[in-house]
Design a protein around this nucleic acid. Structure first.
Lengths: 123, 123
DNA sequence: GTACGGCTTGACACCGGCGTCAAGGCAAGG
DNA sequence: CCTTGCCTTGACGCCGGTGTCAAGCCGTAC
């Protein structure tokens, strides 16, 4: 499979696939002409990457998941390293949720206060 | 008040104050030597900026709040423009909270599943 | 021949709020 | 006179994932 085909199947761009490869996530053999040749399994890998990116992971965080998939597991998140990253990310998300909730509360307070005390003048 | 003093009082840097000025948020007169000279009221403005930045606002979003303060109101969020931005930001935060909650759910599911089905092999 | 569509690598652009370095002016104190 | 420490403007770096353009190779079809 050539890079354009894989990009099409994965719903992304050749540029993006080269970027993933550059960061050690996607693998490709090379044709005699230098073209990247992808195994069918790489589609699965790319899907895993896209899914985790959408969940807020960085490429570095994703690496263990890809390695886990390559090791023959039927899911990328069952390996110890992946689990460690998962736990860390969940903690980060929880922390961020707390901060966002606090921010939301402050904004609501300001809004309520503004509605009670309308402004004296606009400019 | 010179830029270094204001920066000190506001807990930030001269670079940052120049940046705010460049974006139309902070104002300064100029001494004969070209040094920025700040009114005491600017400290309040800078605090408002820092506070809103910490809540996830961008500098452009903050401008109405600063203008509101300058108009003589005792809080930056009581003017109509500020209220509009507040409403928009609250909606954004709510939306993001929803997404984050969904992500958190997915991650928890993956973690639980990983703990039930330990990996066959790591590499 | 040449035109086209795939591919290759390399490199710049973006966003936003700064850090940081460069090169220089100004005031004060030794 | 020289140092020190403020200030000035201008400009590049960062982060991260991707778009996009350049310049060029490869293969096929006309």
């Amino acid at each position: 499979m050539l890079i354009g085909e894989l990009a099409e199947l994965a719903g992304t761009s050749p540029r993006t696939l080269r970027y993933y490869e550059e960061h050690g996530l996607v693998r490709a053999r090379r044709d005699a002409n230098g073209y990247r040749q992808y195994d069918d399994g790489e589609l699965r890998v790319v899907h895993e990457i896209r899914s985790l990116l959408a969940s807020g992971f960085g490429l570095d965080d994703i690496r263990p998941f890809v390695e886990c998939l390559r090791a023959g597991n039927n899911a990328g998140h069952v390996c110890p390293d992946s689990v460690a990253v998962l736990r860390r990310k969940i903690a980060e998300v929880d922390d961020y949720l707390g901060q966002l909730t606090e921010v939301r509360r402050r904004l609501h307070d300001q809004l309520d206060q503004a509605l009670e005390n309308p402004c004296r003048r606009t400019l």
